[in-house]
Design a protein around this nucleic acid. Structure first.
Lengths: 245, 245
DNA sequence: TCACATTTGTCCGTATGTATC
DNA sequence: AGATACATACGGACAAATGTG
């Protein structure tokens, strides 16, 4: 019996994760990785303009199709945007977080989520955000939140729909928490909520109510009154739940 | 002075959100959305095989390059994988969460997210999951969690790495909460954690510790001892954080 | 208002590599 | 080992969009 057969009986490779996959990168992946790396290394900065597709193809010594597939990847990943026409082309951007919430929303769409499940998760996450915001919100955050309330009141006074700006309030709250992960999670929750709410009719009387609740939440934020803040938020979220049914 | 010039002075379009963006979808976006929609509607299921690129091009009445760019998008979004060679082609998958974490890792690389932020979010979500699990876990869930502990102990006894099965424990907890939203959120958190942890060396002594903590968590789950459960979970997550630094 | 240049968007034909039968 | 079916990749061409003179 040879050593090889012994190895086959009890291969050393049995432990998971010993070897890294060697699947040869496709050309367009190589191109996108190289551009990505330049962004990470700071060689390419936001608002920098990439050469045209034809020029990139020349420099990478690949076909234009390959360059385009690489650009699609970078575009979807949030590293750049593409505009056509004169003076158009690829411009480096930093919209990775935005694209992340889009993907997260897709993940939610794949599952059948009930309003109750959604509300339970929303309560937990937004309460956590509020708790962090109470600790970390500065004057600027408060000012921006107040502007949101003022705009909302104007819109309601004109008897127009204020749903969008109502959603925005919660996003601003998330930003006040100064935690990027919370911002992303709130973005996903917000997107689901918009999705669910798009089926039900907007309600002026409800809008007048929640704008007051939002205003009170800002007060508790300044006074750092945790318990009152949680009560108000719960009230807000639960009435939103009722509107969804 | 005409009405038009008056409109220019104070355009009605000043109000935010009055108009929806009309940016005409590019053809490959239209193709990818259509395939996406079929997945959401359940017409296309996981492991279903799509026609070849040439056939898709024929059916959509577009060029092959357009189909390819659509496939790149769907591939990166986690809706399908592509294999070359005989019998190859596009196969529907559900790896959206995995792809989401790839993007989140890019955000980490861009230094938008710190380990502290990640841990803060993880604490909130997993505590909420644990709270729900205490209320909702049935005998079957407990049994599966116990099997996880037993397997982990076996692996440690063989002096092999138990990282994977350790992560699995938290996923099982999420499933016990019976809330799909929590399962998805935990999936995202878990995948990020795996990726972050893959850079640091596995630690046998640490593994022996956390398996005990996990076991104790199951006990508190049965006894419905909330406070003790939260303490244990916090211990577990904070030591995981320390391992990441 | 009208041509013009630039760049992306799209299609076609062809060739090569690759994995299975 | 050879045939087959598929993705991968290249090059050329034209259409569409967009800013400039």
């Amino acid at each position: 019996m040879s050593d090889i057969s012994l190895l086959r009986e009890k291969p050393l490779a049995a432990k998971k994760g010993m070897f890294t996959p060697v699947r040869s990168k496709r050309t367009f992946e190589e191109v996108s990785s190289q551009i990505k790396r330049l962004v990470f290394e700071g060689v390419l900065k936001v608002e920098d303009k990439l050469p045209s597709e034809a020029e990139l193809a020349k420099q990478f010594d690949v076909g234009r199709q390959t360059v385009r597939e690489a650009l699609r990847i970078l575009e979807l990943s949030g590293f750049l945007t593409v505009q056509k026409g004169f003076g158009g082309g690829s411009v480096i951007k930093d919209t990775i977080l935005k694209k992340t919430t889009n993907l997260l929303l897709d993940a939610f769409k794949m599952e059948k989520i009930t309003v109750e499940e959604f509300t339970a998760a929303r309560l937990v996450i937004e309460k956590a955000i509020l708790a962090e915001a109470i600790d970390r919100a500065d004057e600027r955050d408060i000012e921006i939140l107040r502007q949101n309330i003022a705009q909302t009141k104007e819109i309601i006074a004109r008897r127009e729909m204020a749903t969008d700006i109502g959603f925005q309030f919660h996003s601003l709250l998330a930003k006040s928490s100064k935690n990027t992960v919370f911002v992303i999670l709130e973005g996903a929750i917000n997107a689901i909520h918009r999705n669910l709410a798009s089926r039900s009719l907007p309600n002026f009387r409800a809008a007048k109510k929640w704008v007051c609740v939002h205003e009170e939440i800002i007060d508790t934020l300044i006074k750092k009154d945790r318990d009152k803040a949680f009560d108000l938020l719960e009230k807000d979220i639960l009435s939103a739940r009722n509107a969804l049914r």
